[in-house]
Structure formats: structure tokens, C-alpha cells
Simulated scan of single mutants.
Amino acid sequence: MRNRSSERSDPQRISMELRGQILQGVFPLGARMPTEDEMCRQFGASRYSVREAMRVLTEEGLVARRPRIGTIVAATKPSEHFVQSVPSMQKLLNYPEGTVRKTIGTGYVEANAELAALLKCPVGERRFRIRALRYAVGSSVPLCYTDIYILPQYATIVNHPHHEFTLVSDQIREVFGERAEKTVIEISSSSIKRNIAKLLDVKPATPSLTVTRRYANARGEEFETTVAVHPASRYTYSFEFKRQP
């Protein structure tokens, strides 16, 4: 049987106590946390246990390491984190229930060299762009920023009655009969640009998970390209595939 001392020195117990102290205001925003040595003495714990506990709090966004200062309180509540578990390849194409895409801007754009490389189209070709933020229902913290580029003839899709709750590709199929016969998904790591960082309420250059989806019709024409930028601390893709009997 574990005694009280060993339980208190467990990394999970240490992180729980420190988290509670942060949430209760014992350590206010910006306050310097005790040093590693101080926490080892306070909890009667090893350096490993203390480091593991602080790692958990860092991943939650509650504390952050600052050069020449130490570890400080970076937030007074854990950052929101959304996990999408994908049981099949088809499910990978969609976000789960419980999220909503809020449009923050629309308009026509002409592809410059950078955008043309992304869309794999000639420089100067036009696209209709939908800018949006995705949220978990009931939350004010955006999970990701999204740019949706579609062919100009589909621009009126923004008037679809369920535009913010369903995939744009599904809406295009429903309204225009254009079906995605092939979808390519690219997942990469990147850093968040300054203009997008402001919308996501994170610092510029914050690590991100960028998911690009390309929808092509039977003729091989790419009629929609969607680029979603997720702060790394707020989103996880979890894949689960089962062998069919």
C-alpha cells in the first residue's frame, strides 16, 4: 500500500496540487513558480517527479519557462485542447460533431506566385476565398483558422442554410452536383504567421498543425482547396483503424 508521502510525491499529485494553487490564485498570472529544488523539498519528491509534473502544466499552457527568470504562470486556466479520433479514412475528411465554422470574411482573390503554388494553378487565376475560424460549440477559443478556396462559379455556396455546420465540398455536391472523386489530405507542421496568430489569440511563430485538403472532380479538376491552421496545443488527430472481418 502506498503511504501518504509517496502519493504526494507522485508527478500526478504534484501537478494536481500546483494546478489547484494556480487556479485559486495562490500563484497569480505572471508569478514566478518555486524552483525545482524548492518543489523537491516541498513535496519530498525526486527531480524526475517534479519535472514530469511541470511538463504536464506546461503542456496545459499554465506555466512557461522564461530564460534568466525561471518558470512563470502563463495562464490561470488550462488551454482548451480538441482531440479528433478518426476510425476510418472517410471520417478523416470531416470534423466531428460539436464544432462550428464561423465565417469572418469572403471575397475573390487572384493567385500570386505563392498562392498559385499552393493551389497548383496558373498565376493570376481567380478563386473565391472563405476565411473562417472553427470553434467547439460553446467555446470562445478558436481551434483553427481556415482558408477555403473554391472555383468562382461556386461562390454562392456561402448562402447555403447550413453553411457553417457542414463541409463546403458537401454543399457544392448538394447544390451544384459537383462530386469529389478524389480527396488528398496533407498534414504538416509549421509556425503561425502574425496576422493569423492575432485571430487565434496566440503569439506569432507559435507551432501549428496545418491540414490541407484538396478536392478534385472526376475530370481531375481541383475545385476546392482548404487550409486549416491549428495551434499545436489545441488540436490532435488520433487515428484508429480496425481490420474488418
Rank of each mutant, 00 (worst) to 15 (best):
D201S: 14
S139F: 01
L143W: 00
P161K: 09
L23T: 05
F239G: 06
I187D: 09
F165M: 14
N3W: 06
S208F: 00
R47Y: 07
R214G: 06
I150E: 03
T226I: 08
P245Q: 08
V56G: 01
S191A: 14
P204G: 06
L143S: 00
T99C: 09
K242D: 11
V202Y: 01
E80F: 06
V56S: 09
R2W: 14
L23G: 05
Q21L: 13
A117E: 14
V137W: 06
V50W: 00
G105S: 10
H160T: 05
R55F: 13
E52L: 12
S88P: 02
R129D: 05
R131M: 12
V229A: 00
E110S: 15
E110W: 10
M39H: 01
T71Q: 06
A64C: 13
A155P: 00
L119G: 00
I192L: 02
Y215M: 00
R51T: 10
E174F: 02
V83A: 11
L118R: 04
S9G: 09
I185Q: 08
R19Q: 14
V50G: 04
H81W: 02
N159C: 10
H81F: 07
E178F: 03
S188Q: 15
T225C: 10
L115V: 00
A53D: 02
E186V: 13
M54V: 07
R214T: 01
T58E: 12
F165D: 13
G30F: 05
P28S: 07
G44I: 07
P122D: 02
D10T: 01
T58W: 00
S85D: 13
R2M: 15
R234H: 05
Y149C: 04
V184S: 11
Y135W: 07
A111Q: 04
L57R: 02
T71R: 10
L199D: 04
A232M: 10
I148M: 09
E36K: 12
V137L: 11
K182E: 13
F27L: 06
L93W: 05
V100Y: 04
